[in-house]
Design a protein around this nucleic acid. Structure first.
Lengths: 130, 130
DNA sequence: CGGTATCCCTAGGGATACTG
DNA sequence: CAGTATCCCTAGGGATACCG
């Protein structure tokens, strides 16, 4: 708790506290998670190699890491089929699917506002050049 | 970002291509941006030091970096008042404010689903412990 | 197929100064 | 006040190789 014998005892707000959506951001918008969830949501249950190919550019190590994290967070389920060769399938859960409307909103925001961002960037850059 | 194609050229899909919301994520959900935008949206026009105190834990260097980036993206405006001592005010723009409903959705998702995530994590961890 | 196990490597955040 | 200017430092992503 706040000992503060020294000086810095202001009403400090954690970065997470200052912004109620910070926890969600950590869960949903960390690196590679949106492509993975998006792909799983669009194309349904998929095997490891399918995800690897669809997302491309991602390495197996990182894909595994993110899949584990998403599994732990209850966003996806992993099903292991002990066959030869082994088969593993990943599927989005109800919890994961509950993000779909959010993603749709984001996509809609993007389609109407991304151009404005580009314009703003261009303006900023050309203004700075002078 | 680099993007070196060291790998064999398959019908690769960019991480950005695989997921239509990837660009938005880069703009809106990169580190510290949500707390900054949230604070600016909630408390209106603010000076540098106010943001610094409200968000706490953030260093002036990083705060400056993110503010510049948000300004470049057209999400906030910076107003410099040449006084002594100097005064600078930051304010969210219309474009920035257009994210508010999105943030509200996220906050709502958080309030109904964050507990489920915690539960999933607990289940995962205790299952792994056995 | 579905992953580990390594090593490497750098972007970016933190701490600590210092200035106009 | 509102930032720069440095230095440091490590988490985490990429590349490569290998295993059950």
């Amino acid at each position: 708790m706040a000992g503060k014998a020294t000086q810095t005892a202001l009403p400090s707000i954690d970065p997470e506290e200052a912004c109620p959506i910070a926890p969600v951001v950590d869960i949903v918008f960390s690196r590679w998670t949106t492509p993975i969830l998006w792909t799983l949501n669009m194309h349904g249950r998929q095997r490891f190699v399918e995800l690897e190919r669809r997302i491309a550019a991602i390495t197996p190590k990182v894909l595994t890491q993110r899949l584990r994290q998403l599994e732990r967070d209850g966003m996806i389920v992993r099903t292991y089929h002990p066959e030869v060769p082994p088969r593993v399938e990943y599927e989005i859960t109800e919890l994961g699917r509950s993000l779909a409307p959010l993603f749709a909103n984001l996509a809609e925001w993007a389609s109407t506002n991304l151009a404005k961002v580009d314009l703003a960037r261009h303006d900023y850059d050309t203004a700075a050049a002078r």
